[in-house]
Simulated scan of single mutants.
Amino acid sequence: MLGHLDVMHITAGLFVGVMVGLTGVGGGSLMTPLLVLMFGVNAKTAVGTDLLFAAVTKTVGSTVHGWRDTVDWRIFRRLAAGSIPAALLSVAALQGLGEIGAKAEHVIIVFLGCMLILTAFAALFQKRLVRLARRGGSRHDPRALLPTVLLGAFIGVAVSISSVGAGAIGVTALLMLYPNLPVSRIVGTDIVHAVPLALVAGSGHWLYGDVDPVLLISLLIGSIPGVIVGSLLSSRAPDHLLRPALAAVLLFSGLKLLTS
Protein backbone atom coordinates (compact mmCIF):
# COMPACT_ATOMS: atom_id res chain seq x y z
CA MET A 1 0.00 0.00 0.00
CA LEU A 2 1.21 3.46 -0.85
CA GLY A 3 1.42 5.87 2.03
CA HIS A 4 -0.51 9.15 2.14
CA LEU A 5 2.64 11.11 1.30
CA ASP A 6 3.43 8.87 -1.69
CA VAL A 7 -0.07 9.46 -3.09
CA MET A 8 0.47 13.21 -2.68
CA HIS A 9 3.82 12.97 -4.49
CA ILE A 10 2.25 10.96 -7.34
CA THR A 11 -0.52 13.59 -7.61
CA ALA A 12 2.11 16.37 -7.70
CA GLY A 13 3.97 14.47 -10.45
CA LEU A 14 0.73 14.10 -12.41
CA PHE A 15 -0.05 17.83 -12.12
CA VAL A 16 3.44 18.89 -13.20
CA GLY A 17 3.45 16.36 -16.05
CA VAL A 18 0.15 17.68 -17.41
CA MET A 19 1.36 21.30 -17.18
CA VAL A 20 4.64 20.48 -18.94
CA GLY A 21 2.71 18.71 -21.72
CA LEU A 22 0.28 21.63 -22.06
CA THR A 23 2.70 24.56 -21.92
CA GLY A 24 6.17 23.17 -22.63
CA VAL A 25 7.54 25.05 -19.60
CA GLY A 26 10.19 22.95 -17.83
CA GLY A 27 9.16 20.72 -14.94
CA GLY A 28 11.86 22.21 -12.68
CA SER A 29 10.02 25.54 -12.64
CA LEU A 30 7.03 23.80 -11.07
CA MET A 31 8.33 20.68 -9.33
CA THR A 32 11.22 22.09 -7.28
CA PRO A 33 9.24 24.96 -5.65
CA LEU A 34 6.35 22.53 -5.07
CA LEU A 35 8.65 20.11 -3.22
CA VAL A 36 10.25 22.89 -1.15
CA LEU A 37 7.17 25.00 -0.35
CA MET A 38 4.41 22.36 -0.08
CA PHE A 39 6.21 19.20 1.03
CA GLY A 40 9.04 20.78 3.03
CA VAL A 41 11.72 18.82 1.15
CA ASN A 42 15.31 19.95 1.74
CA ALA A 43 16.29 22.34 -1.10
CA LYS A 44 19.37 20.35 -2.22
CA THR A 45 17.38 17.08 -2.23
CA ALA A 46 14.54 18.75 -4.15
CA VAL A 47 16.94 20.02 -6.85
CA GLY A 48 18.89 16.73 -7.12
CA THR A 49 15.73 14.59 -7.30
CA ASP A 50 14.08 16.94 -9.78
CA LEU A 51 17.10 16.86 -12.11
CA LEU A 52 16.91 13.07 -12.50
CA PHE A 53 13.10 13.34 -12.72
CA ALA A 54 13.56 15.78 -15.64
CA ALA A 55 16.19 13.57 -17.30
CA VAL A 56 13.82 10.58 -17.38
CA THR A 57 10.72 12.48 -18.55
CA LYS A 58 12.60 14.48 -21.19
CA THR A 59 14.23 11.34 -22.59
CA VAL A 60 10.77 10.35 -23.87
CA GLY A 61 10.30 13.79 -25.43
CA SER A 62 13.78 13.67 -26.95
CA THR A 63 13.05 10.36 -28.66
CA VAL A 64 9.95 11.85 -30.28
CA HIS A 65 11.77 15.00 -31.42
CA GLY A 66 14.71 12.96 -32.76
CA TRP A 67 12.32 10.74 -34.70
CA ARG A 68 10.50 13.78 -36.12
CA ASP A 69 13.85 15.44 -37.02
CA THR A 70 13.05 18.58 -35.01
CA VAL A 71 16.53 18.86 -33.46
CA ASP A 72 19.26 21.21 -34.65
CA TRP A 73 22.40 19.28 -33.65
CA ARG A 74 24.71 22.23 -34.38
CA ILE A 75 22.89 24.38 -31.80
CA PHE A 76 22.81 21.39 -29.43
CA ARG A 77 26.63 21.09 -29.60
CA ARG A 78 27.07 24.83 -28.99
CA LEU A 79 24.80 24.72 -25.92
CA ALA A 80 26.44 21.57 -24.54
CA ALA A 81 29.93 23.07 -24.97
CA GLY A 82 28.94 25.70 -22.41
CA SER A 83 26.45 23.85 -20.21
CA ILE A 84 28.18 20.55 -19.36
CA PRO A 85 31.45 22.07 -17.97
CA ALA A 86 29.41 24.76 -16.17
CA ALA A 87 27.14 22.10 -14.61
CA LEU A 88 30.09 20.05 -13.31
CA LEU A 89 31.74 23.12 -11.77
CA SER A 90 28.47 24.35 -10.25
CA VAL A 91 27.63 21.03 -8.52
CA ALA A 92 31.19 20.84 -7.11
CA ALA A 93 30.98 24.46 -5.88
CA LEU A 94 27.57 23.82 -4.29
CA GLN A 95 28.89 20.81 -2.37
CA GLY A 96 31.88 22.88 -1.24
CA LEU A 97 29.48 25.46 0.23
CA GLY A 98 27.47 22.67 1.84
CA GLU A 99 30.53 21.48 3.78
CA ILE A 100 30.88 24.81 5.57
CA GLY A 101 27.33 25.05 6.88
CA ALA A 102 23.85 25.86 5.59
CA LYS A 103 25.14 28.28 2.94
CA ALA A 104 24.29 25.91 0.06
CA GLU A 105 20.64 25.82 1.16
CA HIS A 106 20.50 29.62 1.22
CA VAL A 107 22.17 29.93 -2.20
CA ILE A 108 19.70 27.43 -3.73
CA ILE A 109 16.62 29.15 -2.25
CA VAL A 110 17.69 32.64 -3.40
CA PHE A 111 18.81 31.43 -6.85
CA LEU A 112 15.63 29.38 -7.29
CA GLY A 113 13.43 32.34 -6.36
CA CYS A 114 15.20 34.62 -8.87
CA MET A 115 15.05 32.00 -11.64
CA LEU A 116 11.32 31.44 -11.08
CA ILE A 117 10.63 35.18 -11.43
CA LEU A 118 12.76 35.29 -14.60
CA THR A 119 10.94 32.22 -15.96
CA ALA A 120 7.57 33.86 -15.24
CA PHE A 121 8.51 36.88 -17.37
CA ALA A 122 9.99 34.65 -20.11
CA ALA A 123 6.77 32.59 -20.26
CA LEU A 124 4.57 35.69 -20.28
CA PHE A 125 6.49 37.80 -22.83
CA GLN A 126 8.03 35.06 -25.00
CA LYS A 127 5.98 35.85 -28.12
CA ARG A 128 6.63 39.61 -27.88
CA LEU A 129 10.37 39.09 -27.45
CA VAL A 130 10.51 36.76 -30.46
CA ARG A 131 8.59 39.29 -32.59
CA LEU A 132 11.13 41.96 -31.65
CA ALA A 133 14.03 39.63 -32.58
CA ARG A 134 12.46 38.81 -35.94
CA ARG A 135 11.91 42.49 -36.67
CA GLY A 136 15.61 43.07 -36.10
CA GLY A 137 16.47 40.75 -38.98
CA SER A 138 18.16 37.38 -39.15
CA ARG A 139 21.31 36.62 -37.27
CA HIS A 140 24.10 34.81 -39.11
CA ASP A 141 25.25 31.59 -37.45
CA PRO A 142 28.90 32.69 -36.88
CA ARG A 143 27.65 35.67 -34.86
CA ALA A 144 25.41 33.43 -32.76
CA LEU A 145 28.18 30.95 -31.87
CA LEU A 146 29.61 32.68 -28.77
CA PRO A 147 26.21 33.87 -27.42
CA THR A 148 24.90 30.29 -27.73
CA VAL A 149 27.88 28.82 -25.83
CA LEU A 150 27.47 31.52 -23.15
CA LEU A 151 23.73 30.79 -22.97
CA GLY A 152 24.61 27.11 -22.49
CA ALA A 153 26.99 28.02 -19.63
CA PHE A 154 24.28 30.14 -17.96
CA ILE A 155 21.73 27.31 -18.30
CA GLY A 156 24.29 24.81 -16.94
CA VAL A 157 24.85 26.91 -13.80
CA ALA A 158 21.13 27.70 -13.36
CA VAL A 159 19.95 24.10 -13.80
CA SER A 160 22.64 22.65 -11.50
CA ILE A 161 21.82 25.06 -8.67
CA SER A 162 18.04 25.41 -9.03
CA SER A 163 16.93 22.80 -11.66
CA VAL A 164 15.31 25.77 -13.49
CA GLY A 165 16.48 27.38 -16.74
CA ALA A 166 16.27 24.86 -19.59
CA GLY A 167 12.56 25.48 -20.24
CA ALA A 168 10.96 28.87 -20.90
CA ILE A 169 14.20 30.85 -20.43
CA GLY A 170 16.30 28.65 -22.73
CA VAL A 171 13.65 28.48 -25.45
CA THR A 172 13.02 32.25 -25.36
CA ALA A 173 16.76 33.04 -25.62
CA LEU A 174 17.23 30.54 -28.49
CA LEU A 175 14.24 31.96 -30.36
CA MET A 176 15.86 35.41 -30.12
CA LEU A 177 19.28 34.12 -31.23
CA TYR A 178 17.84 32.09 -34.14
CA PRO A 179 14.67 33.97 -35.16
CA ASN A 180 14.42 32.27 -38.58
CA LEU A 181 14.32 28.71 -37.21
CA PRO A 182 10.89 27.06 -36.71
CA VAL A 183 9.69 27.07 -33.09
CA SER A 184 9.30 23.25 -33.13
CA ARG A 185 13.01 22.92 -33.99
CA ILE A 186 14.06 25.26 -31.15
CA VAL A 187 11.83 23.44 -28.63
CA GLY A 188 13.10 20.05 -29.82
CA THR A 189 16.74 21.17 -29.51
CA ASP A 190 16.14 22.59 -26.03
CA ILE A 191 14.48 19.35 -24.82
CA VAL A 192 17.24 17.12 -26.22
CA HIS A 193 19.94 19.38 -24.72
CA ALA A 194 18.20 19.22 -21.32
CA VAL A 195 18.62 15.41 -21.10
CA PRO A 196 22.45 15.12 -20.89
CA LEU A 197 22.58 18.33 -18.84
CA ALA A 198 20.05 17.01 -16.29
CA LEU A 199 21.81 13.62 -16.23
CA VAL A 200 25.23 15.19 -15.58
CA ALA A 201 23.97 17.62 -12.93
CA GLY A 202 21.60 15.03 -11.39
CA SER A 203 24.36 12.40 -11.22
CA GLY A 204 26.58 14.91 -9.45
CA HIS A 205 23.86 15.53 -6.84
CA TRP A 206 23.31 11.74 -6.56
CA LEU A 207 27.02 11.17 -5.79
CA TYR A 208 26.75 13.66 -2.93
CA GLY A 209 23.57 12.01 -1.58
CA ASP A 210 21.18 14.77 -2.67
CA VAL A 211 18.62 12.48 -4.39
CA ASP A 212 15.64 10.70 -2.75
CA PRO A 213 15.02 7.52 -4.86
CA VAL A 214 11.57 6.80 -3.34
CA LEU A 215 10.44 10.37 -3.98
CA LEU A 216 11.82 10.18 -7.53
CA ILE A 217 9.84 7.01 -8.34
CA SER A 218 6.63 8.46 -6.87
CA LEU A 219 6.96 11.62 -8.99
CA LEU A 220 7.65 9.62 -12.16
CA ILE A 221 4.60 7.37 -11.60
CA GLY A 222 2.45 10.50 -11.82
CA SER A 223 4.39 12.57 -14.35
CA ILE A 224 4.79 10.10 -17.23
CA PRO A 225 1.03 9.64 -17.86
CA GLY A 226 0.58 13.35 -17.08
CA VAL A 227 3.01 14.42 -19.83
CA ILE A 228 1.21 12.16 -22.32
CA VAL A 229 -2.23 13.56 -21.39
CA GLY A 230 -0.96 17.17 -21.44
CA SER A 231 0.71 16.70 -24.83
CA LEU A 232 -2.49 15.25 -26.31
CA LEU A 233 -4.54 18.18 -24.98
CA SER A 234 -2.00 20.90 -25.86
CA SER A 235 -3.48 21.67 -29.29
CA ARG A 236 -6.86 22.40 -27.67
CA ALA A 237 -5.54 24.27 -24.63
CA PRO A 238 -6.26 28.04 -24.41
CA ASP A 239 -2.65 29.29 -24.44
CA HIS A 240 -3.75 32.92 -23.88
CA LEU A 241 -5.20 31.85 -20.50
CA LEU A 242 -2.70 29.16 -19.50
CA ARG A 243 0.48 31.22 -19.90
CA PRO A 244 -0.61 34.18 -17.72
CA ALA A 245 -1.90 31.74 -15.06
CA LEU A 246 1.37 29.78 -15.14
CA ALA A 247 3.42 33.00 -15.00
CA ALA A 248 1.40 34.14 -11.95
CA VAL A 249 2.08 30.83 -10.14
CA LEU A 250 5.81 31.03 -10.93
CA LEU A 251 6.00 34.67 -9.84
CA PHE A 252 4.19 33.92 -6.56
CA SER A 253 6.45 30.90 -5.88
CA GLY A 254 9.58 32.95 -6.60
CA LEU A 255 8.55 35.80 -4.30
CA LYS A 256 7.48 33.33 -1.58
CA LEU A 257 10.91 31.66 -1.65
CA LEU A 258 12.75 34.99 -1.54
CA THR A 259 10.71 36.31 1.38
CA SER A 260 10.52 33.07 3.43
Rank of each mutant, 00 (worst) to 15 (best):
residue 200 V to Q: 02
residue 220 L to S: 09
residue 114 C to R: 00
residue 244 P to W: 14
residue 132 L to D: 08
residue 92 A to M: 15
residue 131 R to G: 14
residue 175 L to A: 14
residue 37 L to E: 09
residue 94 L to V: 07
residue 214 V to E: 12
residue 189 T to C: 04
residue 107 V to F: 07
residue 246 L to C: 01
residue 121 F to K: 12
residue 17 G to Y: 06
residue 197 L to A: 05
residue 227 V to W: 01
residue 121 F to V: 15
residue 84 I to C: 07
residue 206 W to E: 09
residue 53 F to Q: 14
residue 90 S to A: 15
residue 19 M to I: 11
residue 224 I to Y: 01
residue 13 G to N: 04
residue 242 L to K: 09
residue 114 C to G: 06
residue 34 L to A: 12
residue 134 R to H: 11
residue 3 G to P: 05
residue 124 L to Q: 14
residue 186 I to P: 02
residue 14 L to M: 15
residue 161 I to H: 08
residue 248 A to F: 14
residue 140 H to W: 07
residue 44 K to R: 12
residue 65 H to I: 11
residue 60 V to R: 11
residue 230 G to P: 02
residue 135 R to P: 06
residue 188 G to Q: 03
residue 193 H to P: 00
residue 14 L to D: 01
residue 95 Q to S: 14
residue 229 V to G: 09
residue 47 V to I: 03
residue 114 C to K: 01
residue 73 W to Q: 11
residue 107 V to I: 13
residue 214 V to F: 12
residue 9 H to T: 05
residue 256 K to F: 06
residue 85 P to Q: 10
residue 216 L to T: 00
residue 102 A to D: 12
residue 190 D to T: 10
residue 190 D to I: 04
residue 253 S to A: 15
residue 137 G to E: 08
residue 257 L to Q: 06
residue 150 L to A: 12
residue 164 V to D: 00
residue 108 I to H: 01
residue 116 L to E: 02
residue 106 H to N: 07
residue 200 V to K: 02
residue 70 T to P: 11
residue 134 R to V: 09
residue 36 V to L: 11
residue 7 V to I: 15
residue 181 L to P: 03
residue 27 G to I: 04
residue 61 G to W: 06
residue 73 W to M: 12
residue 143 R to C: 03
residue 87 A to C: 13
residue 96 G to T: 08
residue 12 A to H: 04
residue 170 G to V: 00
residue 82 G to W: 04
residue 164 V to L: 04
residue 172 T to I: 08
residue 113 G to Y: 08
residue 222 G to N: 05
residue 120 A to G: 06
residue 39 F to K: 07
residue 246 L to N: 01
residue 76 F to H: 14
residue 71 V to H: 10
residue 15 F to K: 01
residue 167 G to F: 01
residue 117 I to H: 00
residue 243 R to D: 01
residue 36 V to T: 07
residue 119 T to V: 10
residue 162 S to M: 08
residue 126 Q to H: 15
residue 50 D to S: 13
residue 114 C to E: 00
residue 192 V to F: 15
residue 86 A to I: 06
residue 69 D to I: 12
residue 64 V to W: 05
residue 207 L to Q: 15
residue 78 R to H: 08
residue 28 G to E: 03
residue 181 L to H: 09
residue 30 L to K: 03
residue 7 V to R: 14
residue 240 H to E: 14
residue 157 V to E: 05
residue 202 G to E: 04
residue 256 K to V: 05
residue 57 T to V: 14
residue 234 S to Q: 08
residue 51 L to H: 02
residue 66 G to F: 15
residue 194 A to T: 09
residue 194 A to K: 07
residue 227 V to H: 05
residue 164 V to P: 00
residue 8 M to P: 00
residue 171 V to G: 02
residue 226 G to C: 05
residue 215 L to P: 07
residue 15 F to V: 13
residue 121 F to S: 11
residue 116 L to V: 08
residue 88 L to Q: 04
residue 40 G to N: 05
residue 155 I to K: 02
residue 26 G to V: 07
residue 209 G to W: 08
residue 244 P to I: 13
residue 68 R to P: 11
residue 216 L to E: 00
residue 27 G to H: 03
residue 104 A to G: 11
residue 220 L to Q: 10
residue 147 P to I: 09
residue 210 D to I: 00
residue 204 G to V: 13
residue 257 L to E: 05
residue 46 A to T: 04
residue 63 T to V: 15
residue 11 T to H: 00
residue 50 D to M: 01
